[in-house]
Every structure is written in structure tokens, then in C-alpha cells.
Design a protein around this nucleic acid. Structure first.
Lengths: 193, 193
DNA sequence: AAATGGATGTGATCTATGTCACAGTTTTAA
DNA sequence: TTAAAACTGTGACATAGATCACATCCATTT
């Protein structure tokens, strides 16, 4: 149940077996079935989540009713709404399982506890968030400087598994285009070469 | 020279006077005149920078020659290219002073040293990066869900001082539109109400 | 096995924003 | 103090991508 988390943590920091055993006590394992939600817009995000198995998406819905996907979280990734998690404010995001998933949940209190008791986790999360920031900045600059097709091609290379496992209209709303546009892009690519 | 840095750090973490005195020894003060660069595309980003006074921008140039601004950094903000700073790889960004500026520079080696000797800084940077990530995620979702005018109006509210101090074409490339479009938006707003 | 809802493809049109071109104004540097 | 460079505005036109409207097609549930 904690295999992937342990592996990921050990890739970044060195902690003792006892420290990891302690960490385990602070997480709540949970199974979430396909199409079920971890939380929905308007509720506070009371857990930050590690994905041991499965696939999640976090997304917002704008005033016109369109969905915009912030993140797909596969095995070994973290998910949640940082702002809501830290402040307790209602979230603007929804988190939904796209496949039957096994999650490890941690509350703000337990997380604070973990950082306090095992300071190496402060470093772990700093590095995790840092890499996330770098990737998000790239994605932002990419939406300014590249066409929808270029972004799709890039995603094909970077996350081929996500594209395999996720319906097209969700890929579209991750890339910031409509499903119709992505459908046309894809048929053009297939015919073109 | 270190007033703003000290203030900002104390807003987030508690450290002793001696610890801050130690931190000060790891920074290199530098004045950067308007239109001068801290580094340019292709060079590694060897310093992360705190702005004591003035205003910086970081931006990329795409294949068509268009500029895209990642960040404006005013007094009390940090700037740099995280990826290049951490890996030593050549940066894709340029950092330029938009006004005569006073900066505090720190190298990767000194930064590692700082985090090791004063672990509270690990927490400081985790929180800093965390807030930056939250803001960048919002900006990304905003480019998907709002029009150019809405983004401009939002920026007017959030960063009126940046808009005052920075030429229109740079605001445009921060918002992800052309200067012509922003010019038209602005004249429309002025006439409209 | 039928039925319901989710997912995809594709045509016809619309629109926000980009591109190009030029003029006028302000700032900077020699 | 003057030339050069940076900045802003605006018209005419072009275009990537959005919208709307159907038609299949596929998967899940009963």
C-alpha cells in the first residue's frame, strides 16, 4: 500500500526506516472508484493525496460551464488543491478518479506534524513543489508561444500513457482547446503522416 | 541594503539575529542599471536574485521572435530561472532590469549552504515556491478561461503598480496577447466608461 | 440484449485575436 | 539639442480556434 510513496520519497531524501514508519501512520488509505470525487468545487480540500494506483484529474469549471484541467495525477504523483488545503477556503477545483484508484490521504494537521517531526520532509516537499512550479511555468509559456497542434505533439511525447488512458475531450481541456479542435488536429496528423 | 530581505524572511519564519547575519554573508549585493541584463538566453542562471529596489522582468523569446514574459519582480520579490539555477543547464530566459535596481544575488553553492546551516530557510523557500506555484496555476487556468480584456482588468486590480511602471507592450506579452490587441482593449475601456 | 449516456468525428459558420503597415509621440543617449 | 530608438495608436485584412448542429460509435448498466 505504501510502496510507491516510499520509493518516491527515497528518490529525493534519505530518511530512516523508523521515520518512514512514523510517516505511514499519518496517512489514511482510501480507494476511490472511477467517476467518484475526492472533493468538489465549493468544498474545502481537506486532504492532499498521493496516488498509489490509478489516475486522477483536477479541474475547474468556468462561468460558461467549460472544464479546464489543471492536472492529471498518475501512480506516484501528488494531487490536491494547495491553496484550499493550506487556507481551508472552499476550493475552485474538482478532483475525480478517472480509473479505480488507491490513494493515500493526509490532512493539514498531519502534514504539519510530519514536517515538524521529520524535517527532511520539508525538503522533500520543497523539491516536489519546485519541480511542479518549473513544469507549470513551462506549460504557461507554452500556451503563449505554441499552437494547439504543437502542444498536443509535445504531450504525446511527454505523457503518452496519459493520452492512452484518458478520453480525448479531457486531453483537449488540459491543452486549452475544444474537443472539436483536438479531434481535427488528430485526424490531420493521422492522414498527414 | 538587506532591509527588505530581512522583512520578507521575518514575515514567514522566525530566525535569530545571528542566523540572519550569517545569511547576509552568503549574498552578493549588485546594482543593475535599466536595460542591463542579469543573464541572457543560452547562459546558465548562476544566481537566484532578491530585489531590494527596482524592477526586473524575466522573459523568453520564441522561434518567431516574440517575447513572452514569465514574471515581473518588484521590490521584495525573488527572480531567476529555477531550472537552470538547479541544474546548471543553459537558461531559456532573459532577465532584464526595467529600472535601476539593487539586487541581492546568491549562488547555488551558497544557497545549499544556507539551507544546510539554517534549516528554517528550507521552510522559507518551500512556502515561497508554494505561493508562486499557486499563483502560476491560477494564471494558467486564467489564460484558458478568460478573455484578454478580463485578464487585463484582473491585472489592473492585482498589480496596478506594475501597470504604472511598465510599458504597454510588456504588459501585453505578460498577458499573452499582442501589443496591438492590448492597445485596442485599453482604448475601448477608456471610452466605454 | 437492450438501452442509456459517454465519446468521437465532421461540416458550416462565427469571432477574438493576430498580422502588417504606417503615423505620431515620447524617451534616451551621444 | 538633436538623432535614434522605444513606445503607442489605429486601420485593413487574415486566421486559428470556437460554436453549433448532427451523426455515429462504444461502453456500462440493468
Amino acid at each position: 500500500m505504501f510502496d510507491f510513496l516510499q520509493q518516491k520519497v527515497n528518490e529525493t531524501i534519505s530518511i530512516s526506516e523508523e521515520e518512514f514508519e512514523y510517516a505511514k501512520t499519518l496517512f489514511l488509505p482510501k480507494k476511490l472508484r472511477k467517476r467518484r470525487f475526492l472533493f468538489e468545487e465549493g468544498e474545502p480540500c481537506i486532504y492532499t493525496t498521493f496516488v498509489e494506483k490509478g489516475l486522477l484529474r483536477s479541474y475547474t469549471i468556468d462561468e460558461k460551464g467549460s472544464e479546464h484541467i489543471l492536472q492529471f495525477a498518475m501512480q506516484g504523483w501528488w494531487s490536491g488543491d494547495l491553496y484550499s488545503f493550506l487556507t481551508g477556503e472552499p476550493s475552485e477545483y474538482n478532483i475525480e478518479a478517472l480509473e479505480d484508484s488507491e490513494l493515500l490521504l493526509i490532512t493539514k494537521e498531519s502534514w504539519d506534524q510530519l514536517l515538524k517531526e521529520v524535517p527532511a520532509f520539508e525538503r522533500y516537499f520543497r523539491i516536489l513543489i519546485q519541480n511542479n512550479l518549473i513544469a507549470t511555468q513551462r506549460r504557461l509559456m507554452g500556451t503563449f508561444s505554441t499552437t494547439a497542434e504543437e502542444r498536443y505533439q509535445k504531450m504525446l511525447k511527454e505523457f503518452p500513457d496519459v493520452i492512452q488512458r484518458v478520453p480525448l475531450h479531457m486531453i483537449a481541456s488540459y491543452l486549452g482547446v475544444t474537443r472539436e479542435t483536438l479531434s481535427r488536429i488528430r485526424s490531420q496528423i493521422t492522414s498527414g503522416s
